[in-house]
Computed example of a mutant assay.
Amino acid sequence: MNTQLRRKGKDYLEQAKQQIGPCLTVSLECDGGGKNSQVHRDRLRRAMNRMAKRSDGSAEIRRLFAELKTLIDTREMWSGEYSGVCIHISDGVTRFLKLPYPPVEKADLDDSFCLRPAADAIAALGDWLALNISLKSPRLYKFDGERARLLGEVDLPQSVYAFSEDGAVDSGQRAHVRRARGVDTPHLVGHGMKANKNQRELNEPVFMREVSHAIGELPESKELPMVVIGDTRVVSSFLDTYHHRGGEVFTVRNAESHPDAEAVASICRKVAWDNQQKRKSEVLRQIEEMRQRDGVFSNNVREVFEAAKQGRVSAAVVSCDEEIWCRMGKDEKPRSAQADEENAFEALDRIYLETMLKDGSAVVLPEDKIPGGKSVAAVFRW
């Protein structure tokens, strides 16, 4: 089961764990996304003002609220399609995540970030390659989780018809590519060919090999998953030629012809989200399968927390709509605590964070959806 957190999501969580001092978390439902951005920004401004009145008013806290105000006032950041946002701000860190789902709403100022409202979005974060494969003007993009950038430095052939100087292949010729020294554009040379194929059919295998070769030379092709976008037949023809060393390849065969960078980004976001939801289902299935095994399954918060700290949690699901506060006792065991006690921490968020950073898999759900009917369920490695 491939449920490992992508590098970008892991970076997000590692940065969150390293924060010391006041950490501001705000999550907000945003019905209508960017179309109603003024409504969302007004709601957030009111929440900020209420929090500011309850805070101690220190210079450090005022800087956090000043940064939040800047986010609220930057109208262009609130454009696009989304159903919620999650904002994390601390000294030197500002994160603004648009969510494709409505989160549990929070407005917290604490010693650490609350990560569960953004858990699904964090798990979907990652860089991707995106190839719009067509017989004319193929384009390769890099998607960074938000935007798609055309990789102009990758030399893809312009067209399936670009492999002969006169734009046609003589009958009786078999196409193959020969690169003359100092010449970038491949030219066709004769090799014996039957006359029952047209120009496109003759050139297409060479065209696909050239596209595959250009992508294969890119360092990112060894590291990143790829989305291949195009007509069903052309996508299949390309994949018959190409082996992606970066692992996962996803295909989108019903997109509009020649999508622009914004459309490619939208496609990549949906593919990343659908893939994350599939991984989430796999985690839940693993937990359900292990529920009846003694010593492997647990829904005890303290026990799961200790195991997560030790890197022993293989898979966990935690509640998004509950809070369980603990503190570490003299015996270094977690004990129940009130939220306002000194050194208190929210245990469910810590379970999620520790599990993900120690190469386990953790997902967040409403409590009534968690196997066993409690606030946490986990499967141990040993």
Rank of each mutant, 00 (worst) to 15 (best):
Thr3Trp: 12
Gln4Glu: 07
Leu5Lys: 03
Arg6Pro: 03
Gly9Trp: 03
Lys10Met: 07
Leu13His: 01
Glu14Pro: 00
Glu14Phe: 00
Glu14His: 03
Cys23Ala: 15
Cys23Arg: 04
Val26Tyr: 09
Ser27Ile: 01
Glu29Ser: 07
Glu29Arg: 14
Gly32Glu: 03
Gly32Ala: 04
Gly33Arg: 07
Asn36Lys: 12
Asn36Ala: 08
Asn36Thr: 05
His40Gly: 00
His40Tyr: 15
Arg41Tyr: 09
Asp42Asn: 13
Arg43Phe: 07
Arg45Trp: 11
Arg46Trp: 04
Arg46Asn: 10
Met48Thr: 14
Lys53Gly: 01
Glu60His: 07
Arg63Lys: 15
Arg63Gln: 13
Glu67Arg: 13
Asp73Tyr: 09
Thr74Gly: 04
Trp78Pro: 08
Ser79Tyr: 06
Tyr82Ser: 06
Ser83Asp: 14
His88Gln: 05
Ser90Pro: 01
Asp91Gln: 14
Val93Asp: 06
Arg95Ala: 11
Phe96Asp: 10
Tyr101Met: 00
Pro103Met: 09
Pro103Asp: 10
Asp110Cys: 02
Phe113Leu: 06
Cys114Thr: 15
Leu115Ala: 06
Arg116Gly: 09
Pro117Ala: 05
Ala119Asn: 04
Ile122Gln: 13
Leu131Ser: 02
Ile133Pro: 08
Leu135Glu: 14
Ser137Lys: 12
Ser137Asn: 15
Pro138Ala: 14
Leu140Ala: 10
Leu140Gln: 03
Tyr141Leu: 04
Gly145Trp: 02
Glu146Tyr: 07
Glu146Met: 11
Ala148Met: 01
Gly152Pro: 00
Gly152Met: 12
Glu153Lys: 00
Leu156Tyr: 09
Ala168Gly: 01
Val169Ile: 14
Ser171Asn: 13
Val177Leu: 15
Arg178Thr: 10
Leu188Arg: 10
Val189Arg: 10
His191Ile: 10
Glu217Leu: 10
Glu217Ile: 02
Pro219Cys: 04
Pro219Gln: 11
Asp231Lys: 12
Val235Glu: 11
Arg245Gly: 04
Gly247Ile: 01
Gly247Pro: 05
Glu248His: 09
Glu248Leu: 14
Glu248Thr: 14
Glu248Met: 13
Phe250Ala: 09
Arg253Val: 06
Asn254Thr: 04
Asp260Asn: 14
Ala261Pro: 04
Ile267Leu: 14
Trp273Asn: 06
Trp273Thr: 05
Asn275Phe: 10
Lys278Ile: 03
Arg279Trp: 02
Ser281Val: 03
Glu282Ser: 13
Gln286Phe: 11
Met290Gln: 15
Arg293Trp: 08
Val304Ile: 08
Val304Met: 10
Ala307Leu: 09
Ala308Phe: 07
Ala308Asn: 03
Ala308Ser: 14
Gly311Gln: 09
Ala316Arg: 08
Val317Gly: 05
Ser319Pro: 02
Cys320Asn: 11
Cys320Trp: 00
Glu323Pro: 02
Glu323Val: 07
Arg327Tyr: 08
Arg327Pro: 03
Met328His: 01
Asp331Arg: 08
Asp340Asn: 11
Phe345Ile: 09
Ala347Arg: 02
Asp349Ile: 03
Leu353Thr: 14
Leu357Ile: 05
Val364His: 12
Leu365Pro: 01
Asp368Ala: 11
Ile370Pro: 08
Gly372Leu: 05
Gly373Arg: 10
Gly373Asn: 10
Ala377Arg: 08
Ala378Trp: 07
Trp382Asp: 14
